[in-house]
Design a binder for these strands. Structure first.
Lengths: 126, 126, 126, 126
DNA sequence: GTGGTCTAGACCACA
DNA sequence: GTGGTCTAGACCACA
């Protein structure tokens, strides 16, 4: 369900939080959708339940998720479902920055970057 | 000189190492170029000298940099200067992956992603 | 330094967070004061470092404490030092409510409650 | 009938048990008074019947309540009705301690605490 | 079944 | 030395 890179340097809990945040922003995780239980998610990604718990806590404090005592967490209703394009592009910013910084330091130009992006996108389901 | 994001979750030493590696790969840091001293680099980016030292050690062990007793470290000569395009694109991979994953979870399509990239690129010197 | 009641039903991390919050509000913990390290506080109260870490995280996210990489956490500067009386009384609210609810259910009147409070206060250093 | 604070950190079953205990101690719930059924109480406070059931069991084991097969639970007769003042003040202890600890950490003196208590008491029916 | 709290302890990044 | 992250696993409150 989520893609975690344990050795990327980015803490697992941050990777997971970011992905859930984005899928809530896009509506891919619609409001009121139930999230997997802590144990389920932990098992599926072979990570510790406390790590998942930390993510759920974080996202609840941000208002992205809602806590339901004794029942699964759900995606919060209000401002998080299907954000407008502009809002979703904000979430993209840091990754654009990283890519562009990398591109410049590798002395690539805009077209080379775009070509690389398009070609990677085509093969994204490999 | 380098762009460090202390709160990104990625350790500073990794950010710094990656940037030097890329600038060496592109030839932007040409072979034999002298690097700033540990103290200088640490001061300029308000980071700890030990962090810089760790980066220099790492890059020396990778063969990217060369140590010169009593003199500044330099960019190593051989296989790291001006890598062919294909080699440099390899360095881009993880960032492409991150961007595409983000894009998909935000329900953007390839064109929207490319547009965002081009527009960010235009303003990259803001 | 702090008073923790492990069997009160209130989670330790909440008790600790509340006490630090109050001492920052009163100026008893002045701005820029260094807090004990996680390990030190954990040892002194015989609790787990992770529990203390959770408290420090919580208070940082509230803006009560500040993080200093590699150095002790400090009390944040701005609006937390020496709150005006009215602000500090807010922090008292839940405890007043609890006491009054208890008093009413025990069929005590205001004077009996005040007497009990004054007499407990006198002996507070027992 | 009872006042429950779900987010106070104190388990609901503890809050409920404490309140019934106090109202029995004061005679506000006189001996032989019938308590609401589990379902009724659960519905009124929007809590789970199992939580109420647990409280009733607990208080029965303490001798505060009595079970009557097929009929509502009742307040037990003996030592729990109209405790002498001194006994009831004992029940107050932990709340006095909490209030005084809070007061001291907020750098309030006895008079400020008493004033706050009296003023909150006046408005207790808001 | 769900999440919440806590412990014990490892290893890492950074000063 | 400092805090950050993660694991493995226990026990509890609540549905």
């Amino acid at each position: 369900m989520f893609i975690l890179k344990p050795h990327s340097g980015v803490p697992i809990y941050r990777q997971l939080a970011e992905q859930i945040r984005r899928m809530a922003a896009s509506g891919q995780l619609a409001p009121a959708t139930e999230l997997p239980s802590i144990r389920e998610l932990a098992l599926k990604h072979a990570i510790n339940p406390m790590t998942v718990s930390k993510v759920y806590n974080l996202l609840e404090s941000e208002g992205v998720l809602e806590r339901n005592r004794g029942k699964p967490m759900t995606v919060a209703a209000r401002p998080h479902s299907q954000s407008p394009l502009s809002k979703r592009l904000d979430e993209l910013e840091p990754h654009l920055e990283n890519l562009i910084l990398a591109g410049r330091q590798l002395e690539l130009d805009a077209d080379e970057l775009v070509d690389a992006l398009r070609s990677k996108w085509e093969n994204k389901d490999d």
